[in-house]
């Protein structure tokens, strides 16, 4: 059962990646990568060129893609982290590079639609 969460009021408080991961029960896949960054906005897409064009600095990126290039996109756009949805597992190369480039990667068994809805309830918006 999903507990009803209070709808976020703008300016309430910011959530750190660490808190989001704890509240939404994500698995942290990277090691020794800080997860203290505060997250205000997010972007969801599986098309890398779309993320490159439309994500903004600090976004948490929700995607079903797992290959190495997601790290490159996160670095290029200065994203706060990557959340892999639908229980997909990141490739070993991806995790290695993420560790090197300090990009936190999380994993959730929920599909993108569901996890984005929960993020929105916690105050993470897609505002551009």
């Amino acid at each position: 059962m999903i507990k009803k969460t209070q709808i976020f009021q703008a300016g309430d408080h910011k959530m750190k990646l660490k808190e989001l991961a704890g509240r939404l029960n994500w698995e942290l896949k990277t090691r020794n990568v800080p997860i203290e960054a505060e997250v205000k906005t997010g972007y969801a897409s599986d098309l890398l060129s779309d993320v490159l064009a439309n994500s903004i600095e600090g976004d948490l990126w929700v995607t079903r893609q797992t290959h190495l290039n997601i790290v490159a996109i996160a670095v290029m756009r200065d994203l706060s982290g990557i959340l892999i949805s639908s229980g997909a597992e990141p490739d070993p190369d991806t995790l290695e590079k993420a560790g090197e480039k300090m990009v936190p990667i999380f994993r959730t068994t929920l599909p993108t639609f569901e996890v984005v809805g929960r993020l929105y309830q916690l105050g993470i918006t897609g505002e551009r």
């Binding site: 290959h67 190495l68 290039n69 790290v71 490159a72 670095v75 590079k97």
Partner: peptide
């Protein structure tokens, strides 16, 4: 080439 080499841009 298992995937495109974007990483090289970095």
């Amino acid at each position: 080439a298992t995937f495109p080499k974007i990483m090289e841009v970095l």
